[in-house]
Nucleic acid binder design. Structure first.
Lengths: 337, 337
DNA sequence: TTGTAAGCGTTATCAA
DNA sequence: TTGATAACGCTTACAA
């Protein structure tokens, strides 16, 4: 007790392997070996060293280890916007999975433009990887990563560059199947409410809808674009529903669809009686009774699982060619169709 | 062009200060000085070095710098749960602010129990700080941080330990004022729907409600606890509203209040006609027309601003005593009271 | 099985 | 103004 106070009052001297070595009367390398599972070291000595280390609160300095090994165990994650519920949920799952394999996710929120320069700056660390989750990342950064030898894994929008891995949901298939379902249920006057046209996911999803309509000899009556938020989705849906006699409104994501639901309510349109409304993603809110939204699930766990697997493979063999993994979307039938 | 291909095909040699020094025909120290604003170096030489460095894509290795300076520029952020919309929004804002000052937020999602061991492991890095945002962090970790000399900043739940900084919303005052407002508007039969009782924020908010009621010579008719989620909030509210004749239901957070709103709807109770429902936090959803929730804002930007300021002060003077900053809550009157 | 020593990429100190 | 050199804390040949 007094001992503790004594050492605390003393100028804070950093505890290193040498400190432990002195305490245990062994060499610095013995301490290092005690912490590397495979290394030669008598069981008795290892035990003693580990005990002393634990008492002193010693752990090998990750910066020094990283410098030595040329690997930081740091993973940059560029996420479109944490204001987007899907991205936020995705990030949560990804963080938990990375934490579990002792890789450390550094979060770059792509909301404002400065995010790109932040990534650039972050590349001073020998990152284990850069993971892209939506958002718009400047193309030159991809090149910088390649030059710096930083592996890149993109999710949600395929990046075609050598040795870049991709994980992507089958967007078109998902919404094509959903549209077929709506057609089979007798819907024929379709509207499509997309996200920003430059977003890969929005374009893909639109293609799915148009494809299914085309198969049935149909065309959308009306289309509009939003920005994947509830507010803008509501405004766009209001216009779409007022100016057109739709019996189905397909939205490019759930937030937009939830906006559309309020628009329908405002216009005293019955959902699904007068018009069906469907979304994409299956965010947590979609399941709330008040929305009970029929949607296409963009499954987070499989996507994150694929990212983790790709990361581990890439770390094991940095030179291997890029891989692409597709994740199946899942139709979730609830009450709005 | 061919040059680029040539160097690319070659075994990837890491670009270091030495590489640039050789290219520029100067010493390694000159390169280092070129990157340190204050250092002595002829303008001409600095310019040349910087140009060559840019062409070669060189940036000083952050691991080496960190090892040298004993500072990593890494900040661990322990966040209760990314499934919680408030925590997710908070994290987004915090990440953007840290990115801006070139500190790198490592996200630890406290959802599962392993989060504590992850933090322990992460302390191998000489972290600039550990920021706590909600969730339950094992008490011994606080002590380990102190031992390792890692500054700690807690937000949302005060940690009283030497040299720990705190940022906290005036929870009690916020809900006390809100309750007074409801009383002034003629409400008298109050229910309180809390979060997990062991959560500091829930206890504080409850105290505020009880305080205001007491001032008016009132007591709550019924109380229940939830877990800060919509689902559990809805279930608890349903019971509360069915079994008691309440004219005001004060909820400890917005998610719970939104659950309460659906419960009221299910029971054909008019809000605010039959019963007022209010929340706490002012998450983005609270403003949606479909909810239009009267609530108490737990302002994110001021809290994050305070955290950043405290971090910078702490880094400048690691030994200074801990500071506590309180953030004023703000009554947001919408349509449910 | 153990210890010594070299090197990972920087920056700061000290001479020149 | 510049360049050599010594840390920073670790791991790993290499030698004993």
């Amino acid at each position: 007790m007094t001992d503790q106070n004594g050492s605390q009052s003393k100028r804070h001297r950093r505890v290193t392997a040498q400190t432990i070595a002195d305490l245990a009367g062994v060499s610095r390398s013995a301490v290092s070996r005690a912490f590397s599972p495979g290394a030669y070291l008598s069981a008795e000595k290892r035990h003693r060293i580990l005990k002393i280390a634990a008492e002193a609160g010693y752990q090998p300095n990750a910066l020094a280890v990283g410098l030595k090994e040329g690997r930081s165990n740091l993973v940059a994650v560029f996420v479109g916007s944490m204001r987007n519920p899907y991205d936020a949920a995705f990030m949560g799952c990804l963080a938990r999975s990375l934490n579990a394999i002792r890789k450390w996710p550094i979060l770059i929120d792509g909301t404002d433009k400065s995010a790109n320069s932040a990534v650039e700056e972050l590349m001073r660390y020998p990152l284990d990887a850069l993971i892209l989750r939506g958002g718009s990342m400047a193309p030159e950064i991809v090149e910088h990563c390649a030059r710096a030898g930083i592996p890149m894994i993109s999710s949600g929008r395929p990046v075609s560059a050598p040795r870049v891995d991709n994980v992507c949901c089958r967007n078109a298939e998902g919404l094509r199947e959903m549209t077929r379902l709506l057609i089979a249920r007798g819907r024929s006057r379709f509207g499509f409410l997309g996200g920003p046209p430059e977003f890969y996911s929005s374009a893909q999803r639109r293609a799915g809808v148009l494809g299914a309509l085309d198969e049935a000899g149909l065309r959308p009556i009306a289309e509009a674009t939003g920005d994947y938020t509830v507010e803008v989705g509501a405004a766009a849906a209001r216009r779409l529903l007022r100016e057109n006699d739709l019996d189905a409104l397909v939205c490019a994501n759930d937030a937009t669809a939830i906006g559309a639901l309020s628009a329908a309510r405002d216009l005293s349109l019955d959902v699904p009686g007068d018009v069906a409304v469907v979304g994409f993603d299956d965010i947590a809110m979609a399941e709330w009774p008040i929305f009970n939204l029929t949607t296409v699930r963009n499954p987070i766990e499989p996507a994150v699982g694929a990212i983790i697997r790709l990361l581990e493979k890439r770390l094991a063999d940095p030179g291997k060619p890029g891989e692409s993994i597709s994740i199946d979307a899942v139709i979730i039938e609830r009450g709005t169709h």
